[in-house]
Design a protein around this nucleic acid. Sequence first.
DNA 1: TAAATTACCCACTTTTTTGTGGGTAAGGCA
DNA 2: TGCCTTACCCACAAAAAAGTGGGTAATTTA
Lengths: 119, 119
Amino acid sequence: MKLRETYTCPLELVHDMIKGKWKPIILWRLRLGKTTLAKLERDIEGITQKMLLEHLKELTEFGFVDKVVSGGYPLKTEYYLTSPQGERILDALKIMQEIGITYMKNNGMEQALKEKGLI
Amino acid sequence: MKLRETYTCPLELVHDMIKGKWKPIILWRLRLGKTTLAKLERDIEGITQKMLLEHLKELTEFGFVDKVVSGGYPLKTEYYLTSPQGERILDALKIMQEIGITYMKNNGMEQALKEKGLI
DNA sequence: TAAATTACCCACTTTTTTGTGGGTAAGGCA
DNA sequence: TGCCTTACCCACAAAAAAGTGGGTAATTTA
């Protein structure tokens, strides 16, 4: 996702910044705190390293995520949500999560919720 | 956008329901109240009738939007946000709008905001 | 009953996004 | 110095979304 040169609508801008199959999932995982590429790759089922890196890069570029590189062994780069922008978008994702839970309850999908301990 | 058979993550479900180039914009326009296809087409700059219809159909299918058809002349079908699901997703979009405004202010894009009376 | 208006659909092309399968660079340890 | 490991990149193929340019059905007024 490349941003356009100009935006007149702030909502459109932010939508362009966080759209993409994996971005919400990555941000959602980051709510649990600083973590590494390897852990993200392990925790986000089905994501490829390429997609992870690509989306992480964009999220960083757009100011939702930042990273710290520390040497040591093994090599370690950690990613985390920025404050306030990254944390704020999480508020929007929380609402979406809540809508999703309600929807699943109302549409005979509570089994999946139970399995994930969300209900 | 076709939904999958199963979802384990409520956030992923909702993301799939509202992703698409025009969906957030359509929902955002609908916050102003019940309106017709023609008015949406006129107000949402650059959208084609096909995209509008397609996305409106999906939003309706997924429970964010509903419509009332009234005969009369001219023919009139009106679309509106559902309560509570449609109204609730608006809360998430409001946060995104707010993030967008802040971002634009901090990145030399306030001219566009002024022109739209958002600042 | 013809014209006007609104709502809506379909086949096809173009563009964008994802996925696959490779590869490189750089730090620390043995 | 060679070998792990982590981090990250690139070319190309596949799949998905959006755009184009047509179309139809229904209703009411003239």
